[in-house]
Design a protein around this nucleic acid. Structure first.
Length: 554
RNA sequence: UGGGGCGUCGCCAAGUGGUAAGGCAGUGGAUUUUGAUUCCACCAUGCGGAGGUUCGAAUCCUCCCGCCCCAGCCA
């Protein structure tokens, strides 16, 4: 049932390299910058990198790309590790930081200067930008491009010593200001940043750029296949140039794949950060967020995320995956794993008129219809019950075969009941149903073989526990939300809170099973906001609902 | 209009010259004490377009069209 380990162009390359004996062991790495929480897009990269390491008997390093202290925080370093672990991946002892290599990177930079391949540029940021040219025009050489090695070395050392303010100078690679590839127009290797780094503190006042740090870090770690997203394709010539000029211990190769996009979802770090900062969601782990923390709190099992990652594949074409694909994977995993319980989200009282007042009985219910090993439990039946408001229609449409006046239905595991009377309040709202039951149908089958078209869930009014249930809908109303103006596409009904729901008593206990299916409703998990007197449940995902679809058509 | 990529079913995605995998969605049906699950069937004479090469082309060639990325001292 679970898909086989996928095959894709990157795995094909890895296999070919192995066949050609280019490497004895495959080394990959997942290199997040600790400037935010991980989201499902990162899960694709994690699944690819750790997956390849597993499948080909290699290893995958977790390396933090912490080269910009102005954006990075310990909180993110911690959350990222927790999220990768939760997804089910293990980097073992291979936890690294680009900042571990600052000393070596600096040494190599001096080497570049000595070789006449790098220079200190005194131009302002604006001047550098102007001189870079445009997409169609070549750039101009910096007036400082031909400084002597001695002067460059002196200046670079003083940059390191903290003698100059932020932005005063940069170290640039001397490549080609006329290159059609703008990344090769003397890219910045080091910038002055008087900033506190979460790991190196105030030791450094210059920091390497991504382009300078990344490939060299890969080389130091012996990474064989450095896998990143498409936007770095243009950086590969620079990646290779540096590896070629520097005395690195190994020669990694960079490969690029298309990042994940999902319908009704935005995955840019900028948008996610604004969603949190702007109070549009309750935090990085808000169950509506596409973050790993959000999915976890929502009740999505890690196996479902892994399954999803396998199913969507890896390619170079930009694409937008239907979020329905993720939902399918969640249901697939949960259907097998989740124990069944009954919960009434929007209660409607039912009084069984011919059931003896004060009488109560215990009825056996199975915990999982396809897994006898999950066992059974007892639910209490009595004269006063709650059923789902949606399960009753006073004037039923032709396709509605749940409860309606005069109609007989089955209460799951219990009895057949027939609706005899609808009780309304002064406003005309239905407040109670008077029904009768057939004692001969105990357990849910009629001895005379008579059939019923609907089976409904229910709860004893006296025994059910009150609970808060949170229903989640897509954060955006637009299948392809506008990242530049995302607030316009925000779904005002992304969160619906039901405060008067009822659940079986045991699910309200402090330590219920991880995920549960509330029968005929969907999959739910207990939320961390729960208290002893008020348990809270998140709806992870609803069940497939072809009836709702039918109603929608009409 | 410089450079780098990408275009195969509504959505993902295999395919690498021998006559279009698979999954999701959808549709029809069977089973069902969850309108769930499960099961079965259907769902691209067609591979962005036009030419060409070939016995044979999604795969090779030419031209064209469309989309994405790059002008941070972000990653």
């Amino acid at each position: 049932m679970m898909a086989e380990a996928g095959r894709d162009f990157i795995r094909d390359i890895v296999q070919a390299d192995l066949d050609a004996k280019k490497h004895s062991v495959i080394v990959t790495r997942f290199p997040p910058e600790p400037n935010g929480y991980l989201h499902i897009g990162h899960a694709k990269s994690i699944g690819l990198n750790f997956g390849i390491a597993q499948e080909f008997g290699g290893r995958c390093n977790l390396r933090f790309d912490d080269t910009n202290p102005t954006k990075e925080e310990q909180e993110f370093i911690d959350s990222i590790q927790a999220d990768v672990k939760w997804l089910g991946y293990d980097w073992g002892k291979n936890l690294f930081f680009a900042s571990d290599y600052f000393e070596k990177l600096y040494e190599w930079a001096e080497g570049l200067i000595r070789a006449g391949l790098a220079y200190v540029d005194d131009q302002s940021q604006e001047e550098i930008r102007q001189a870079r040219g445009s997409l169609t025009e070549p750039g101009k050489n910096s007036p400082f491009r031909d400084r002597s090695v001695e002067e460059n070395l002196d200046l670079f050392r003083r940059m390191k010593a903290g003698e100059f303010p932020n932005g005063a100078r940069v170290l640039r690679a001397k490549i080609d200001m006329a290159s059609g590839n703008i990344n090769l127009r003397d890219p910045v290797l080091y910038r002055i940043l008087h900033a506190h780094h979460p790991r190196t503190g105030d030791k450094w006042s210059i920091y390497p750029s991504y382009d300078y740090a990344h490939g060299q870090s890969d080389a130091i770690e012996g990474v064989t296949h450095s896998i990143c997203t498409l936007e770095f394709e243009d950086h590969r010539p620079l990646y290779d140039w540096l590896l070629d000029k520097l005395p690195v211990p190994s020669k990694p190769h960079q490969y690029e794949f298309a990042r994940l996009n999902l319908t009704y979802t935005l995955l840019s770090k900028r948008v996610l950060t604004e969603l949190v900062r702007g109070g549009h969601v309750a935090g990085w782990d808000d169950p509506r967020m596409p973050t790993i923390a959000g999915l976890r709190r929502r009740g999505v099992p890690p196996a479902a995320v892994r399954e999803f990652i396998k199913r969507i594949g890896v390619a170079k074409a930009n694409s937008v995956v239907d979020v329905g694909m993720l939902e399918f994977c969640i249901r697939e995993v949960l259907n097998q794993a989740a124990q069944r319980r009954m919960a009434v989200l929007r209660p409607l009282k039912v009084v069984i008129e011919n059931y003896p007042e004060g009488q109560v009985e215990e009825i056996e219910a199975v915990n999982h219809p396809e897994d006898p090993a999950a066992g059974t439990r007892r639910v209490t039946f009595g004269r006063e019950l709650y059923i789902e408001r949606d399960d009753f229609m006073e004037n039923p449409s032709k396709k509605f075969f749940r409860l309606s006046p005069g109609n007989e239905v089955r209460l799951r595991y219990a009895y057949f009941i027939t609706c005899r009377e609808v009780v309304k309040n002064a406003e005309g709202e239905i407040v109670e149903l008077r029904c009768t039951y057939d004692p001969a149908t105990r357990g849910g089958n009629a001895p005379d073989g008579r059939k019923v078209k609907a089976t409904m869930h229910w709860l004893s009014a006296a025994h059910a526990k009150r609970a808060e249930i949170r229903l989640y809908n897509p954060l955006f109303t637009n299948a392809n939300p506008d990242a530049a103006n995302f607030t316009a596409d925000l779904n005002p009904r992304s969160l619906e809170i039901l405060t008067d729901a009822r659940v079986e008593p045991d699910v309200a206990a402090p330590n219920p099973a991880e995920a549960m299916q509330f029968e005929r409703q969907g999959y739910f998990v207990r939320d961390k906001d729960s208290t002893a007197e008020r348990p809270v449940f998140n709806r992870t995902i609803g069940l497939r609902d072809t009836f709702a679809k039918e109603v929608g058509k009409a």
